[in-house]
Nucleic acid binder design. Structure first.
Lengths: 169, 169
DNA sequence: GCGCAGTGATTCAAGTTTTAAACAATACCT
DNA sequence: AGGTATTGTTTAAAACTTGAATCACTGCGC
């Protein structure tokens, strides 16, 4: 099948996307590393727990929420536990299961660091977007998420006219 | 200063952004790992070189283009050189400098793998966006990129009314 | 009740990548 | 020439990710 290369507009958008996500991820990681001594993923774990009922979640649910493997989560939580921000508890209803629980210390860390983090996000993103753009961003990202999660094969391809190709970053 | 927390709409957009970027990065990495035996960053190096005049770039320029440290680039190029897709050459005009050059083999790899990669991007993203959304995405990502690169301190903060806080992922 | 496939989570062993700091060589400026 | 800044690599350590193997437990079908 003929490759359906990106149009010029799509290429511009894609390049823009790559730059933005890469820069933003770096900026956030640097800031969190400095303020909290942990990368973004680890902060996200604490953040998720802080919003869960009783500040606790099943490992699998947490992994699911963060879209990461259980193995990866186990490793991460092990470190957070060593830091004292998370505690593991057995699950009462299913003795195979484990709950990750945010400790008071973890909550304190979160509250201490959150302002700086929010400020990073705001400064890098939301301070510069109109309310319409915020809505567009949510819509577009939601679409992407759904497309990937449904393993959607996309519009079955009619062959498009050939275009100058680029290897798309 | 009072923290300027995210509004509900901003929070939704942010959560959506986090999910989408994380899933997409994973999907792309998995696909490229399978097809080309390398992560996205390495593919991007080849792709950038393929578009450069004479298929070559100074190490520093390449690092700059990809927004990564020189150290990281050195490591990556060392691996690509071992794979045979990139070659290093001294820089004629500056004897401190080095050029990374895409080999024929590298170009061949790129041409072999690009269709699958483009297909991933298309399936996950562009097949599901309207032309307007493509434009919006470019616009929004461009704004983010500029905000971060200019180290923009954002709108100097008047204190906003307090809102229920979230630690923003 | 028993056996067994399936689930929840961890462990282990590699392997990869990242970072930070130190370094060597060269260029640039005065 | 002399001092400073750049270029790019090296080094060692640490952090992270992966995948396969494993263990404990559940829940279903018989």
């Amino acid at each position: 099948m003929t490759t359906r290369w990106l149009s010029a507009a799509e290429q511009r958008a894609w390049r823009s996307y790559i730059s933005a996500t890469s820069l933003l991820a770096d900026a956030i990681d640097r800031r969190l590393q400095a303020e909290a001594g942990m990368p973004h993923l680890y902060y996200s774990i604490l953040s998720r727990l802080s919003e869960a009922p009783d500040r606790r979640l099943r490992m699998t649910d947490l992994a699911e929420a963060l879209k990461i493997t259980r193995s990866r989560l186990t490793y991460a939580v092990a470190r957070l536990e060593k830091d004292g921000t998370v505690r593991r508890e057995g699950c009462p209803t299913d003795r195979r299961g484990h709950m990750a629980v945010l400790t008071d210390e973890g909550m304190a860390l979160l509250e201490r660091v959150a302002p700086a983090h929010v400020e990073t996000v705001r400064t890098a993103v939301f301070d510069h977007l109109t309310p319409e753009q915020v809505g567009q961003l949510e819509e577009i990202c939601g679409t992407i998420t759904r497309a990937i999660q449904s393993g959607d094969p996309g519009t079955p391809g009619e062959d498009l006219p050939w275009r100058r190709r680029s290897c798309s970053s």
